[in-house]
Simulated scan of single mutants.
Amino acid sequence: MKVFLNPGHCPGVDCGAVNNDYGVTEAAIVREVGDMVADYLRKAGCEVKLLQSDNLAGESPNYPNVCASANNWPADVFVSLHCNAAASEQANGTECFVFSHWSASDSLAACIQSQIVNSLGTLDRGVKEGPRLIVLHNTTMPAVLVELAFISNDVDCQKLIDRKKDFAAAIARGVTDYIQERGE
C-alpha cells in the first residue's frame, strides 16, 4: 500500500492556524505528527511519501505540487493533516473531510476518525463532505483531510502539544484498519 501524507501548510511560508498563548503553529505540529505517522506506516509495511508544500495544485509553482505528486506516484491513499481553529475558543474536537460520502474515502476517514476519537478522547465531530477542498478535489485516490483537534481551544491545543505520538499512532492505525477492511 502506497500512502501519501501531506502535513498541511508550509513552515516559513504559511504557518496555518496559530495559538500565540502556547507559541505553536499548525504547520509545525502537523509536520511532527506526519513524520511519526510515516514511521509507523513504514514499520507496518507501507510505502510512504510525505510532502509539506505551499503548492497544493499549481497555485505556487515555486514549491512542489502536492496533488500532482500524489497522483503521479501514484498513491493508493492520500491523508492531509491539519489543526482546526475557530473564533470561539469553545470549539473543539476531531473531524475528517472527504470529497463525498459513500466512497472509499469515506471508509478511510471513518477508520481514522474512530481511532483518533477513541484513543485521545476528543469530541467526535464526524466525517464531513468537503468537495471544494483542493486536496480532496484534485487527487485521484481515496483522500481524507484530517482536522486533528482545535489549536484555538486550550484543552485540544494541550493535546496537540503533549500527545503528538498518540495522534500519529491513531492515524496510522486508522490507515491500517482501512487497508485490512479493503483486504489489501
Rank of each mutant, 00 (worst) to 15 (best):
V127E: 14
V127K: 14
V127P: 13
V127L: 15
G130S: 04
P131D: 07
P131R: 07
R132H: 14
L133C: 06
N138K: 15
N138L: 07
N138P: 03
T139I: 10
T139V: 10
T139F: 09
T140H: 14
T140Y: 12
T140I: 14
T140V: 12
M141F: 12
M141L: 13
P142D: 05
A143G: 05
A143Y: 02
A143C: 00
V144Y: 04
V144H: 00
V144S: 03
V144P: 00
L145P: 03
L145Y: 07
V146R: 06
V146G: 05
V146S: 01
V146A: 05
E147K: 13
E147N: 01
E147D: 04
L148N: 13
A149Y: 03
F150Y: 15
F150K: 02
F150R: 01
F150W: 04
I151Y: 00
S152W: 02
S152L: 00
S152P: 04
D154L: 11
V155W: 03
V155M: 00
D156V: 09
D156P: 08
D156M: 08
Q158T: 13
K159A: 10
K159G: 02
K159C: 08
I161L: 01
D162I: 01
D162K: 04
D162E: 08
D162G: 02
R163Y: 11
R163G: 02
K165M: 06
K165S: 12
D166G: 11
D166S: 09
D166I: 01
D166F: 07
F167M: 15
A168T: 00
A168K: 05
I171S: 15
I171F: 12
I171E: 11
A172S: 05
R173L: 15
R173N: 15
G174I: 10
G174V: 05
G174P: 07
V175Q: 05
T176G: 12
T176A: 14
T176F: 13
D177G: 13
Y178S: 11
Y178T: 12
I179Q: 01
I179H: 00
I179C: 02
I179A: 01
I179G: 01
Q180S: 14
Q180C: 09
Q180L: 09
